[in-house]
Structure formats: structure tokens, C-alpha cells
């Protein structure tokens, strides 16, 4: 089955948070990239059915999700950005409570809870109160709750925000492991979070879906627009303020700059292979400068 998004729009006063987004999601991991305020969270909240679109619709198996109600929510797993929890609950109780909300029977809930705590590496801490957990542990608990009902649609909003690099890698691997046979939509503004695990990248800007494609293919869009040059540190500073600079590395008494620009920025610049991060910077250069 597919999740079909048809001219989906959300307007707050005069501001268009999501602007006529058309999209079809099949099984696989989708990385939703965009700067803060691009409309990612609004789009995801509409996909989860907690926010009503101003216009357009979302269909699952040809039916509008609002009319599916419980049936749709039973297919859904959602990890909101900066998700809330009950500090006094233990990890075990938190999952059992959400399992009851998701309609799992008592026995099934108990089994699933143990299985998922094991998957996210929190078995040892299952009797501990959530308020004692680190940010990474809470996020892992968050993904565990999202998976309780074996969702066909898994929506993860900025799941790696606030995690250290090690936790982020662990989290990425966890998503990869549980991404089979379902639609996973993962929003982030950290490119490396989705670069390796997403089958398709969706780029949102100012409420619109401006670009989409496989990570390898999508970067071809900016072939010939990424440049590398070796300059003096003083000149590097000048170039940084002048151009959209993706990376900056000091080697000896020289600085290597990675510049994203439609035309060759300077005589000594040489073309470089585009990465997803370059693509992101290309589309979001205004926000970056």
C-alpha cells in the first residue's frame, strides 16, 4: 500500500507552512531534509493526523486518513520532535501504557515491550524511571514506543536532535534495522543522518517540496557547482563571507575551501564531486549565511 499526499497545504494566517505538497510514499526510508521552519514538522503532524490540513488530502490505500480513524492510527508509529514522557514512569511502564493506547493485548504488550527494550539496548534499565535517562536513552525509548504496534508507517521527526555522534550512529543503525517492510519518513536537518540509510531524499524549503531523489542521483543536480580551492587563510576568510562555503580545512599554511556556486568562483578553483551536504547547502544557502 502507498501513502499518497495530494496538494497538501497548511496555512497559518498569511503564512504557508506547507504549500501544495504532492508525494507518494512506498516501502522504504525517506529522508526529509530542510532547514528549521521549512515545514517538515507541520507536514509530519498532518501525516500523523493530529493536524488538519487547510486543503489537500492524505490517502492510505485510496482512502482519506481522517475517514480511516483508528484503522489508520493502528498502522502508525510516530516519534515527535522533542517528545514528551512521564518522568515518574519506568521505561517498562511507559511502553506498557502506550501499548495499551495502541490496542495491544496485555500479553502481547508485555512480550513486545521486552523485545523492543532489548532492540534499543534498554533491557537493563527497564525498571528505571525515565527521568534518570540520558537524552540518547530517551530517544531510544522513543523509537521503541513508535515500534510497539509494528507500524507500517513510521514517522520520525528530528530523531537525532541533541544526540552525540556516537548516539547518532547507533540511532541510525537502529532505524536501518527496523526499516524493512514499512514506510519510514525521517526528518532532519543533519544531512549525515539520512545520507546512508535513506532510499530517497526529500528536500523541503519554505513549505514546498523542492527536490527529491535517491541520494546518489540527487547530487547530480549540482554537478559542476561544487568547487575546491587552496588559498591563504586571510583570503579564505574573505571568501567565506563572499560565497556559500561548505567546508574549510587548514593544511599547512594554506586553507582548503569547498565552495558551492553556479559558476567557477575564482581562477584557481577546481571542480569537486558533489555530496548530499553540498546539495543541502546549495538549496539552503540563504539560511546558512
Amino acid at each position: 500500500m502507498e501513502l499518497c499526499i495530494d496538494r497538501l497545504t497548511k496555512q497559518y494566517g498569511h503564512k504557508l507552512a506547507v504549500d501544495r505538497v504532492d508525494l507518494e510514499l512506498h516501502r522504504g526510508v525517506y529522508g526529509l531534509l530542510g532547514a528549521n521552519g521549512a515545514g517538515k514538522t507541520t507536514l509530519m503532524r498532518m501525516l500523523c493526523g493530529i493536524l488538519t490540513p487547510t486543503s489537500g488530502e492524505i490517502r492510505w490505500g485510496g482512502r482519506e486518513i481522517g475517514s480511516l480513524g483508528e484503522e489508520y492510527r493502528s498502522l502508525l508509529g510516530y516519534l515527535p520532535q522533542d517528545f514528551g514522557y512521564y518522568p515518574e514512569f519506568t521505561a517498562e511502564k511507559f511502553l506498557l501504557y502506550l501499548a495499551a493506547l495502541k490496542g495491544l493485548g496485555k500479553v502481547q504488550a508485555g512480550q513486545k515491550m521486552l523485545e523492543l527494550l532489548d532492540l534499543v539496548g534498554l533491557s537493563e534499565e527497564r525498571k528505571h524511571k525515565i527521568r534518570t535517562f540520558s537524552g540518547g536513552m530517551k530517544q531510544r525509548l522513543g523509537i521503541a514506543q513508535a515500534l510497539l504496534n509494528d507500524p507500517e508507517i513510521l514517522i520520525l521527526d528530528e530523531p537525532t536532535a541533541g544526540l552525540d555522534p556516537k548516539e547518532r550512529v547507533r540511532f541510525r543503525n537502529l532505524i536501518s534495522a527496523c526499516a524493512r517492510d514499512r514506510i519510514v519518513l525521517l526528518s532532519t536537518h543533519i544531512v549525515s543522518d539520512v545520507e546512508y540509510i535513506a532510499g530517497e531524499i526529500l528536500i523541503m524549503k519554505e513549505g514546498r517540496l523542492i527536490h527529491r531523489g535517491a541520494p546518489d542521483a540527487i547530487t547530480h543536480e549540482i554537478d559542476g557547482k561544487v568547487w575546491e580551492c587552496r588559498v591563504d587563510p586571510a583570503r579564505a576568510e574573505e571568501l567565506c563571507s563572499q560565497y556559500n562555503v561548505g567546508n574549510l580545512k587548514n593544511v599547512g599554511n594554506k586553507t582548503i575551501l569547498r565552495i558551492i556556486k553556479d559558476e567557477k568562483p575564482m581562477e584557481e578553483a577546481v571542480p569537486a564531486e558533489a555530496s548530499l551536504e553540498d546539495l543541502y547547502l546549495y538549496y539552503f544557502q540563504e539560511e546558512g549565511r
Partner: peptide, 21 residues
């Protein structure tokens, strides 16, 4: 308290979150 703790989003996307809860 669910609004303040931001647990409402988890509840409302669960199967029984919008009715039985």
C-alpha cells in the same frame, strides 16, 4: 498535563488516543 509535558502527540497518534484515551 499531557499538553504541558508534550505527551499528547504520542497519545493522539496511538490507535485509541483520540477516543478511548
Amino acid at each position: 498535563d499531557e499538553y504541558a509535558k508534550r505527551t499528547d502527540a504520542l497519545i493522539l497518534t496511538a490507535r485509541y488516543g483520540k477516543n478511548r484515551c
